[in-house]
Design a protein around this nucleic acid. Structure first.
Length: 275
DNA sequence: GATAATGTTGGTCG
DNA sequence: ACGACCAACATTAT
């Protein structure tokens, strides 16, 4: 579920909630497989008594910098955080809980159980992911070089975290629409002007997503909600994602939905014609 | 009531 | 190297 703008919103809210500086007094794990690479017993032993020195983000990973380790959390489809909310206490999807030194509790919910917490080998994981699209590392030049280095369809390329970190299904479709590029185009077929348009579109859709505190699609519990339980308002700004059957905001052609790389893919068959 | 689809990622197998 | 397919899961929509 959460892509870069949603994860960024979560991180900002946790910082605003003054979690930095608190000590993790203990942890409780309710779903063993939410912990990667080690049994929950050793996870709880290792994390206990460590202080949260910083909270950040890399791609779709949340990074808790602790006294001894880096704790990474990947929310995958339905991972969520809530701070000391009464409704979290009776949530059947709560998978993990951190008790904090000021008496508050950080609850982690994950309906579909795909999310993972990494406490060991986290540096190795971070090394594997690609450029941070809102940092200066992501230059037009670097983007051009990435595209040159692979022969793939552009949408699966955008979703592959080893190249650029943080783009998911929503923002990939939105960026391709903004740049007027068909999602099945080959990376090698894009001309200079198209590459430049896509580069700007990626940055723009992600920034807009953050400004609107992320995208909450529907109303069910499975949808994205921030740490404070707020919905993101970016859904109203989406041009194509889950807009199949509606007119394209640019040319009024009906938006189409196809399956590409096993993912629902939305585009305008006129603006984003296959050359 | 069965089946498909869901915002993610990692594996296998051509 | 790349893509098709499956797997991990639970819930909602069709």
């Amino acid at each position: 579920m959460p892509e870069l703008p949603e994860v960024e919103t979560i991180v900002r809210e946790m910082r605003e909630a003054s979690l930095i500086g608190l000590k993790i007094t203990s942890a409780s794990v309710f779903w063993e497989r939410s912990i990667a690479q080690q049994p929950s017993t050793s996870f709880c032993e290792t994390i206990a008594d460590q202080t949260i020195l910083d909270i950040g983000r890399r791609g779709k990973f949340i990074i808790f910098s602790l006294t001894q380790n880096k704790l990474l959390v990947h929310l995958r489809m339905t991972g969520k955080f809530l701070i000391d909310k009464k409704k979290a206490l009776q949530d059947p999807h709560e998978r993990l809980r951190l008790y904090l030194s000021d008496g508050r509790v950080l609850h982690y919910m994950d309906q579909r159980k795909f999310g993972k917490w990494y406490l060991s080998d986290s540096e190795k994981l971070l090394q594997k992911i690609g450029l941070e699209p809102l940092s200066s590392d992501f230059s037009l030049y670097a983007f051009q070089n990435l595209l040159k280095g692979v022969h793939r369809r552009i949408k699966p390329f955008l979703l592959d975290q080893r190249f650029i970190a943080g783009i998911g299904n929503i923002y990939a479709d939105e960026a391709l629409w903004a740049a007027k590029i068909h999602p099945a185009r080959s990376t090698h077929s894009l001309n200079k002007q198209e590459i430049s348009a896509l580069y700007k579109a990626i940055i723009s859709v992600l920034k807009t997503g953050i400004e609107n505190t992320g995208t909450t699609l529907g109303s069910s519990k499975a949808n994205y909600y921030s740490v404070s339980g707020r919905r993101g308002s970016n859904r109203d700004k989406l041009k194509v994602f889950r807009c199949d059957g509606l007119p394209c905001p640019r040319c009024k052609t009906t938006i189409q939905k196809i399956v590409l790389a096993q993912r629902g893919t939305h585009f305008c068959p006129y603006c984003q014609a296959r050359p």
